[in-house]
């Protein structure tokens, strides 16, 4: 749906994006990850046509990005705000109409969303009368009001309490189900694991990782297993694997992690273990996105 090709963006002294290419499929939830200052915001601004790349192209639905695409994209920036002195209803109407909705359509949709999010009484309120969490809700609604095909959310959960974060998460999933493609930029890896089907990692202006969450995790597996057992084993007992870690918090339920040696399989390890101990569980350790993130960024 969105094809980002060889984007380069330079500011006076540094190169914010260096030859970044990404393919984002229709209907996916795409996690755009990266440490602070990696170039995520620069890329998002380019997709939103707030700034233009120095070179490279972006295609939306096969068309080169142009002004007509503005109404198809909804953007919730990380640093977001509203007009403090303006009534909420009027403000939403304004933002929706800037995205190209007619007054009547906008009014209707605002009413729908206000009801859905239990904000009916907010229409005449001013932003300064709302709490931060309430403002975030307003901003989220304003982002999706024009039913964009592509929704770009930069840290959408910051500032929300867990209850409201859950509400927003469900709304995001619902929008995705209805067909919206979502780009999701965040530092919260647990929400990435929970929501994203694909991720890309940008670091120091370069894309260093890109793919489905599943395949990336698979690629970062390293034959490490976690074993639950009734009695700790010693390295001396093991021919097939190296003992990495032992956790004896409970005498009856010991947890150990081991890494297979080259040329051995999980079955070999099990065969070696069964005569020695009673196993309670045996599972492969799959790295979390968080671990992958830290590992790749540090590397």
């Amino acid at each position: 749906m969105l094809s980002i090709r060889n984007i380069v963006k330079e500011y006076a002294k540094h190169r914010a994006l260096d030859d970044v290419s990404l393919e984002i499929e229709r209907g996916t939830i795409f996690g755009l990850l990266g440490p602070n200052g990696a170039g995520k915001t620069s890329l998002i601004r380019i997709i939103n046509q707030i700034t233009a790349p120095d070179s490279g192209e972006i295609y939306l639905n096969g068309e080169k990005l142009n002004q007509s695409h503005i109404s198809k994209i909804g953007y919730l920036p990380e640093e977001r705000g509203l007009y403090k002195k303006m009534e909420i209803g009027e403000q939403m109407l304004y933002l929706a109409r800037l995205k190209g909705l007619s007054r009547a359509d906008a009014t209707q949709r605002i009413k729908y969303w206000f009801e859905k999010m239990e904000m009916q009484t907010w229409w005449k309120k001013k932003v300064e009368d709302l709490s931060k969490g309430m403002q975030q809700k307003v901003q989220f609604v304003a982002t999706v009001l024009h039913e964009p095909e592509l929704i770009i959310l930069d840290e959408p959960f910051s500032g929300f309490d867990p209850v409201n974060a859950e509400i927003i998460k469900n709304e995001i999933l619902e929008l995705n189900k209805k067909g919206s493609t979502i780009i999701f930029s965040t530092h919260r890896m647990e929400s990435v694991e929970e929501l994203c089907k694909h991720i890309a990692l940008i670091h120091k202006s370069h894309k260093i990782l890109d793919g489905s969450v599943k395949s990336i995790k698979n690629a970062y597996r390293n034959n490490t297993f976690e074993i639950g057992l009734n009695k700790a084993i010693e390295q001396a007992d093991l021919q097939t694997a190296d003992l990495l870690n032992t956790n004896i918090s409970d005498e009856e339920a010991i947890v150990q992690t081991v890494k297979l040696r080259d040329g051995f399989s999980a079955n070999n390890l099990l065969q070696e273990l069964i005569p020695l101990v009673n196993l309670t569980y045996f599972k492969e350790v799959i790295p979390t996105i968080n671990e992958i993130f830290i590992k790749t960024v540090k590397a």
């Binding site: 707030i50 919730l76 640093e79 705000g81 007009y83 800037l98 995205k99």
Partner: peptide, 18 residues
């Protein structure tokens, strides 16, 4: 200045040109 400090400007310029 108000639009800039309240940060609404980024939302607006995603809809219209600066």
């Amino acid at each position: 200045i108000e639009e800039k400090t309240s940060r609404i400007v980024e939302v607006i310029v995603s809809s219209v040109k600066p």
